[in-house]
């Protein structure tokens, strides 16, 4: 299997790893957002809690969680490794940086947006997963959500993180296709468009939760 490791260790192999894990996470986000839509059911959290219970008792949940965690870890660790290596490829910096003239801000800031999303992820896991699954501090997940989003500082940061997630996804989406080699005069513009729609949908979708609970949710 040395050829496989060697392939994945090559510059293109690392890209492919980023793309495969990235696309997996892109799909995960779709599922995650769809499920979370239950928050807006306006039934005092009944639907949402039922959804949470369902997930919690899903057979093989452990396996799914491990796979998901591995995908996240691979994506993050591989990114950090690439970042360090790529820094080394240019030891002396330019005095003038004109990168805004030849590339998009989304593409240049993947490490920065990714890092902020990572911090967000840790806080996010602590607030919801850790409280609900590990500590079992409250078996009403909807209440945890409501409580958490009541804090305007937290919600503000959450919204900001979601905007950055949108940036990250906007580049990541079409970048994955490029890495797989799917670049075509006819279809690439469509993929770029789809990527933009997708990333806006994710950013708006996730950000709508704190906005809803902060401004529109009266509480029962």
């Amino acid at each position: 299997m040395s050829w496989l490791l060697e392939s994945l260790n090559s510059s293109i192999g690392k890209k492919i790893l980023m793309a495969v894990t990235g696309i997996s996470l892109i799909l995960f986000l779709v599922g995650h957002l769809s499920g979370n839509m239950a928050l807006f059911a306006n039934d005092g959290g009944k639907s949402f809690n039922a959804y949470a219970e369902f997930l919690h008792h899903l057979p093989g949940l452990m396996v799914i969680e491990i796979i998901l965690a591995s995908v996240f870890l691979l994506h993050i660790l591989n990114a950090l490794r690439l970042w360090v290596e790529n820094k080394k490829a240019r030891p002396v910096k330019y005095a003038v940086n004109a990168s805004s003239k030849n590339s998009t801000i989304f593409s240049r800031t993947m490490v920065q947006t990714g890092s902020i999303i990572l911090i967000f992820l840790i806080v996010h896991l602590k607030n919801f997963w850790y409280e609900y699954v590990i500590l079992k501090s409250n078996d009403n997940l909807f209440e945890i959500v409501v409580e958490t989003f009541k804090d305007p500082v937290y919600s503000g940061l959450y919204i900001l993180a979601m905007i950055l997630l949108g940036f990250h996804l906007n580049h990541g989406f079409q970048s994955a296709f490029q890495t797989f080699g799917w670049n075509h005069k006819k279809y690439t513009p469509f993929i770029n468009f789809l990527g933009a729609i997708y990333s806006i949908a994710m950013a708006v979708g996730f950000a709508s939760m704190p906005i809803y609970f902060l401004f529109f949710y009266g509480g029962n």
Partner: peptide, 8 residues
């Protein structure tokens, strides 16, 4: 370095 698809 590796390509990160910035297209610069």
């Amino acid at each position: 370095g590796s390509c990160t698809n910035t297209y610069a």
